[in-house]
Design a binder for these strands. Sequence first.
DNA 1: CATGAATGAGGGTTCATTCAT
DNA 2: TATGAATGAACCCTCATTCAT
Lengths: 180, 180, 180, 180
Amino acid sequence: MPRVVDHEEQRAAILDGCFDLFARKGYGSVTMRGAARELGVSTGTLYHYFDSKEELFRRMFERNARRDIVEAEGILTEGDDLRMRLLKLEEYLEQRADHLQAVLMVAVDYLRNHPEPTARAFLAETAALYREALGERLGLPGQILGASTFSFVLGMILHRTLDPAAPAFSDQLAVLAALA
Amino acid sequence: MPRVVDHEEQRAAILDGCFDLFARKGYGSVTMRGAARELGVSTGTLYHYFDSKEELFRRMFERNARRDIVEAEGILTEGDDLRMRLLKLEEYLEQRADHLQAVLMVAVDYLRNHPEPTARAFLAETAALYREALGERLGLPGQILGASTFSFVLGMILHRTLDPAAPAFSDQLAVLAALA
Amino acid sequence: MPRVVDHEEQRAAILDGCFDLFARKGYGSVTMRGAARELGVSTGTLYHYFDSKEELFRRMFERNARRDIVEAEGILTEGDDLRMRLLKLEEYLEQRADHLQAVLMVAVDYLRNHPEPTARAFLAETAALYREALGERLGLPGQILGASTFSFVLGMILHRTLDPAAPAFSDQLAVLAALA
Amino acid sequence: MPRVVDHEEQRAAILDGCFDLFARKGYGSVTMRGAARELGVSTGTLYHYFDSKEELFRRMFERNARRDIVEAEGILTEGDDLRMRLLKLEEYLEQRADHLQAVLMVAVDYLRNHPEPTARAFLAETAALYREALGERLGLPGQILGASTFSFVLGMILHRTLDPAAPAFSDQLAVLAALA
DNA sequence: CATGAATGAGGGTTCATTCAT
DNA sequence: TATGAATGAACCCTCATTCAT
């Protein structure tokens, strides 16, 4: 037997250690050497577990998305009325604002570095995961309503990223709640 | 001082020729050599007019923003009622969807390549230009309402970028119009 | 000592499985990991049986040479007259052209990757095996005649490798036969 | 104007400086960094003049072939009878043995590193240059005779490369002359 | 005996920028 | 003013070999 290491566990450990790095610096600015150094392994080891930088990124990104969704589902408990659920959403967004900004940034960044259709498809799938979770948890009837709300959330996050002086999520969501 | 005129004309010509390049390939994938070749000048000339790739980008980006806004103002004519103005917005967005997606992408892309505060500040300013133009033209009372609508527009564009299967702008704006 | 038997069998199995790999991809392009995978063993096992990639190659190469010679001797039966034997040679060469090209390629390839005198000496020895077998089987009197014929055969193989449009072995050998 | 350098002259200077390196170490063992160092330029400069290692090699190889042929033609003067011309060939081969061995080695080496059909085609073309020059200069009637002689010459060179103890060119050519 | 995880120097190549002309 | 040759650090990735298990 080789060094007593559970292959899948190691992969997971690397992925977990990677998210921050990608989130902080962006896809294009993460170097495999840098990642290896940060993780305390060699570049060879990184390539032992992942075929390429892109594969490393994709697995990390998907893993993160699933975790985000689980976490969101823990907060956006069903059953309450819509106003209540919007408040929960606000709480979640505010709590995880930095993280979500990072996710968005890194997604766009990845897209720019990989213009191939497969990369687009990968991101579309992952975006759908988030969108569906949001629509479901918010109990919004109809696809379009869910997608529009997702657009709004996406936009608020991006808006704040581009301009930190953008209004708080709570204020913007209040507009939505008032209309609803 | 005819020299100066030529000088400024050259600068402008370079900037105009640059937007497509940045939009198509992204900030990180534009090389100064490539840009020079595409523009039919030498790298030396590029550096004669602009101190760095970043300066080239900034001037190009700002110039584009001003043009976008002028164009939008031509379409989002004031005077009509809100529903009418939302229809005009829809028309503008649909017409310029690709361009606006590119602008968004390139902005985020630039941010990732330049994490310094000055870069953030530059983008925040430019974002404000767009936001204010939108609020004004739509005749939305109150900053927050304007900012929220801007978030929504931003989100729709980004949503479509991440997932081309996202609902059409018209459908999403219809949700907004129905609420209003 | 059944252990020893197994051991030697394993070595032989590895060597036999290796030739194709080296022939197909060339010395420089065979990786120990790739070889291990193809053979269905681990890199560790490879290194257990052979000290280095070079040793693996040498043993494989020599083993192959011996087999080639045995095979050639089966075809180039003595006793016939020279013209007859040249026809047999032609038959053998045509039959095994691809294999012989591969042997030649891999030999040169190995030489380039190991410029040390010991590597040259190893190849010189192996070349002598082929040359002597050829001279003997063809019944050529004198070393120089044998060596010259060997040069010619070598040249035909290399010629065809460099330029697949080179004349067929039969046509070239006909020139030789006509002179003889 | 940029640094006063004739582009084509520089290219030629690099190519000339490269041959020895490739000949000495083989295609696979020449690194662009190493080549740059040896030539006293930076890797960037190498890539300024040649798109890739392969292009550098090809141009160098073809240039060398043309020079070889010009040189051979200077020695293998026409007009003499065949025996005389074979003596001249012997003189040329002996004089340039090391060089020709190197050419052969590097050609095979290149083939192993670039298995693509275009690489084969390139080598086939270059081989044809040598073959035709030889046939013409030796005044050999018929394609097959020329090609066979080329095979023989190729074989002698390779033979000597594989086994330095192989008979001298003169002795082997004497066999040919005796037959003719 | 056998495994395969781990290493890290080194591979080809890119690119923002400088500067002699 | 304009040119483009030159730089060299840094990029992603490979691979022979080692060694803990």
